[in-house]
Computed example of a mutant assay.
Amino acid sequence: MSSISGIAILGSGIFAKEAHLPALVALGSNAPALLAVYSRSEKSSHEFADAAAAAGISPTPAIYHDGDPSMNLDALLARSDISAVIVVLPITLQPSIIRKAFAAGKHVLSEKPVAPDVAGGISLINEYNEKYKKNLVWRVAENFEAEPGFRAAGELIAAGKIGKVNFFKAIVVNHIDVENKYYKTPWRTIPDYQGGFLLDGGVHTVAALRIMLPKPLTHLSGVASLNHEYLKPHDTIHAVVKAGSDFHGIVELSFGAPTKTTPTADQFVIIGSEGWLTVNSANVEGTGQVLRILVKRAVKVEGKPTEEVEEIIEKPKIGVEAEFGSFFDAIRGKETLDIGDPLTALGDVAFIQAGLNSGGASIDLAKLVSDGK
């Protein structure tokens, strides 16, 4: 595990074009050559290759698709000059493709979630650990986990910047209509997996929380609902969660707001014994999208009234680039960020699954991850 001859991207959808290609370009010489792209359709493979060329990737990646047996996925995986693949395919399809890549001797970076459900994730992880882990790197691409902003907030909390964490809240409310570019992808229009957008997007929120909070969440009690029929099976989860006896919080996830203007901004708020912090997305002129951390602390000086001290920290949103770089470093045997562990990513799926199925009852998250039910 010391070199990477070349890579392929399996999947040619929106996120592959709009996030993966720019990340590879940003990494420059630190990224291996993108030699091939696979999609089920020839048209989408061509579109991705054209987008790669337009982004400055040279030579243009070779095109593979299911319409030509001589240029299908098996043909791509048989190439000896491709040592790693990035899997960006529909949620229910990914586990079978990951298994094919392992069997072909390829390192794998697979987009979140790790699997459609906890039981499926356990099966895939066990197979990897037993058959392939010794020789192959597998990471789950969860860009929120890799974002410098969330990681910086976690470091501030770990350093005691706001004292002992007492409680928190995470609010994500989105409006998804039938014209949304992500909704219009066929596999999302008729999802054959639990939670719909809640699984696909909700794991991001859970990953951000686990990066920031000082201890893992242990129990969840929640309710799920469907507010727009076209977003079935569910579009909203409200949950009360706790980390043992240490702290507790509220997580609100919804893709079912009725208007594009939502009643609340997406935000994370973490309250400690000596202060609090928030993390929000923002656009900064000349910088682009950032994660903005606002910290307020109560400072006590003997003989004087308590003062509030404010600090603002901004970090660029480069999570995809960071997760790619870490994956490539892992293959090369270099030290990497502590991200992408499949078992950790399984915990994110467990949170969403618990929120969908709780019905108000308390669910032990660690037990769900260990036995799948």
Rank of each mutant, 00 (worst) to 15 (best):
A298L: 12
V137W: 03
P116H: 08
I211E: 15
S41E: 05
K112D: 07
P22R: 09
A62C: 09
F247V: 07
V140P: 00
P61D: 06
L346K: 00
H46T: 13
T344E: 14
D50L: 12
L277N: 02
K296R: 15
K304Y: 14
S41T: 15
S358V: 01
A78T: 04
Q289T: 14
S80Q: 13
S110I: 00
T92D: 09
R210M: 12
S225W: 06
G372H: 10
H20S: 08
D200A: 12
V37C: 14
A152E: 14
T236P: 01
E274Y: 02
R79I: 13
V369C: 15
D266K: 13
A282L: 05
V251L: 15
H46M: 07
P191R: 09
N280A: 09
A298V: 14
A350E: 05
F150W: 14
V301K: 11
V269M: 04
I171C: 01
I86N: 11
V284C: 04
E179W: 03
L368N: 08
L73D: 03
S221M: 09
A282T: 08
E307T: 14
I14P: 01
I157G: 07
Y64E: 07
L294R: 12
L209G: 02
A55G: 03
S96T: 15
V118D: 04
E155Q: 14
D74R: 13
L356M: 07
P263G: 11
H107L: 07
K43H: 11
G195L: 05
E18R: 15
K373L: 01
K296D: 13
N126S: 12
F351I: 10
E310I: 11
E310S: 15
L34P: 01
Q289P: 02
I237R: 12
G11E: 05
K17A: 13
F247W: 04
N126A: 12
T306D: 08
I97Y: 04
V87Y: 05
P95V: 11
I7V: 14
L365V: 11
P90Q: 13
L27E: 04
D266V: 04
S96R: 13
A78P: 01
T287P: 00
V140S: 00
T189V: 08
R151W: 06
L109W: 11
F324T: 02
P186Y: 10
F102D: 00
A361V: 12
V349Q: 10
H204Q: 09
K134E: 04
E335N: 14
L213F: 10
V349F: 04
P305Y: 09
G28K: 09
D235L: 09
E307P: 00
H248R: 06
A19F: 10
H228F: 12
G56V: 06
E155V: 03
M1A: 11
A101I: 01
N129F: 01
D81L: 06
K296A: 10
Q267D: 06
T264C: 03
F167H: 13
D266N: 15
P61Y: 09
V85H: 05
L291P: 01
L337H: 03
P214T: 15
I98H: 04
E229F: 02
V108K: 00
W187K: 02
V173A: 14
P263V: 09
E302F: 06
E127R: 07
R79Y: 06
N135V: 00
